[in-house]
Design a protein around this nucleic acid. Structure first.
Lengths: 333, 333
DNA sequence: CACGGCCTTGCATACGGATGCAAAGGCGGG
DNA sequence: CCCGCCTTTGCATCCGTATGCAAGGCCGTG
């Protein structure tokens, strides 16, 4: 109804009700020095005339944007949309906005980072498992706050919020052991990433502690259903294994299908299968995948704490998840 | 290495090399009135001193942000991450940034929209299937360009880019008919949405044209695996149906599992199952779901055209996808 | 050689809001 | 009743870039 509202500025409003532009600004600034009376009067007028502060101008002036950059690269792994969904909601609930940076693997990363730098985001949350090197992240951060999620980079001294991969991998090994399995295999996704190595090392170490045999350690090459499927075929054909830990759920689903339908292996009778993450599909009845649930809500909470906390000292936040035992390791009674 | 680069402004750079601030600005503005010689000199200096234009200030001045708001609500349906991924990449490739607005169903939508309005985004791309009413979108748009994706709102006169749902639904019906099926059912997701109605109406109409019987029309209530599973159980128990069209793939996957594992129905022998979208999982060997592929690349291309095109007249862009026939409707030979 | 026109460049100001500083007003204590 | 202090308000300026306008230089033409 108010056509003029399109261009209504704090000055316009101020003139309309006979106060100064500063007063209008203060009315919208929590904690500013202004009487409650005047503030109400201004807010009411703003309501009436359709005035809303221009965030861009505000950013320029405050040198603070309330914008968080979410750096993402692989949305096809269902774990990430789940995380992204809750993270973005929580950020928005705190009045922060999300600038999405989807870093394509093959693309001109430097170029994109430069673009990122120009937007004066308050912090970077790097969810992309790979693609960016630690130095590139530091470069892009340019002194701003950075949180790496599930992507440890100790050398760069960056704050990390991560699921406790080692704890999870050990829990899986323990679970296999408790089931009476003794000959277990591991399937890695992107070999060489810290996350993959952590899960692998902890798993293998615990197997040894338990006196179990590591029958195979396969590098699937990527985190995908197809890669898991290939690894599953390999394992099923080779034989001699009674339990497999896939480095994440999406791999495990592929492996499960490969074992059952590609090799005629019975799961869990012949081979018990476990994954990592607890994506929604893991709970689908056809799969019913035993897995280690990442504590997404806790991760998100911690990320928010780090972003808005006072202390910017790099720190490592490890959060434990918990075992979700389903039918891929335990036959129905 | 340049500590000063943190606060280097166009003025600083200008002073350093003895030109005016305007010259610096022009050096970074394509098509601006500046000699190639001076531009090169300035760009070189910028490089050397680590100067980059401040986008925020630029936005304020140009009244144009190069930021596109992506309004999203259901990232758990794997179709959306796929779309989001390609859309965000394409936007970034054109130098546009994505501000992510995740509208939570139960949340305070108005509140969020107000936040959105304050960021002077150049355009809104509404991917969320529901949640927002057309009026709310118009309100949030505030005269800016809006593209609805797969969400037709004829009454509001908004530009829409959508897959041709009717074409797809007819193709499914034709496919069933060609297979010799005569008693088909339809399973809707979110009943009441235009998309759902379009698929339903076209499917039902074509069944009639083909002389086929509609044995059931179930409203699953939401687009989820679980809802599809429930619908599948219902259909399997009722009997009398030899083909089912689920309104989208995620429903179909649930339905497929319900039919096979919950009811002991053979798919495709007893009942042929088809979905809509062609999400990655539809191609997993366990499902091998016949479906109608949404032309995502074309959709994305068209969205970009609309956003950056000169003509802002509301228009309806319908793009055809194509049938992807897999084993859920055709037994292996 | 003189003049008109184009190309470059700088000057000044706009974009819209935040904030340090000073002035004005209100209140309580002595 | 007067003074001083605290609260409230306005003024002026800043944030960093874009751009209309005018001045200056250069070129070509008559």
């Amino acid at each position: 109804m108010n056509e003029a509202s399109k261009t209504m500025t704090a000055r316009d409003l101020a003139r309309l009700i006979g106060v100064s532009q500063s007063a209008v600004s203060r009315a919208f600034t929590p904690g500013a020095s202004i009487s409650e009376d005047l503030r109400q009067r201004i807010l009411a007028a703003a309501q009436r005339f359709g005035y809303r502060p221009n965030v861009i101008a505000s950013i320029l002036s405050r040198q603070k944007s309330d914008i968080i950059a979410l750096v993402v690269s692989d949305l096809r792994n269902p774990y990430y949309p789940g995380l992204l969904e809750r993270l973005s909601r929580s950020l928005q609930a705190r009045g922060l906005q999300c600038l999405l940076f989807n870093i394509a693997p093959g693309s001109d990363v430097r170029q994109q980072l430069m673009a990122l730098r120009q937007y004066h985001v308050d912090a970077l949350v790097v969810i992309s498992a790979t693609v960016l090197s630690a130095e590139e992240i530091v470069l892009a951060a340019e002194g701003r706050r950075v949180v790496l999620v599930n992507r440890i980079a100790p050398e760069a001294r960056l704050t990390t919020v991560s699921c406790d991969n080692a704890h999870g991998a050990r829990a899986i090994a323990d679970h296999f052991h408790a089931l009476g399995r003794r000959r277990a295999a591991f399937v890695a996704g992107l070999t060489g990433t810290v996350v993959s190595l952590q899960r692998q090392n902890a798993f293998v170490t615990r197997l040894a502690e338990l006196g179990m045999t590591l029958t195979a350690s396969i590098g699937a090459g990527e985190y995908s259903y197809e890669a898991g499927y290939r690894a599953g075929l390999e394992l099923g054909r080779a034989g001699g294994t009674d339990a497999v830990f896939f480095a994440n759920d999406i791999l495990a689903l592929g492996g499960l299908d490969a074992l059952r339908e590609g090799c005629g292996v019975r799961v869990p009778e012949d081979i018990a299968v476990a994954g990592f993450d607890d994506i929604p599909m893991a709970n689908w009845p056809h799969y019913s995948l035993t897995t280690y649930r990442q504590p997404i809500d806790e991760l998100v909470g911690r990320i928010l704490d780090v972003i808005s906390g006072g202390d910017a000292t790099p720190a490592l936040h490890l959060l434990e998840g918990d075992m979700v035992v389903r039918r891929s390791t335990t036959p129905p009674v």
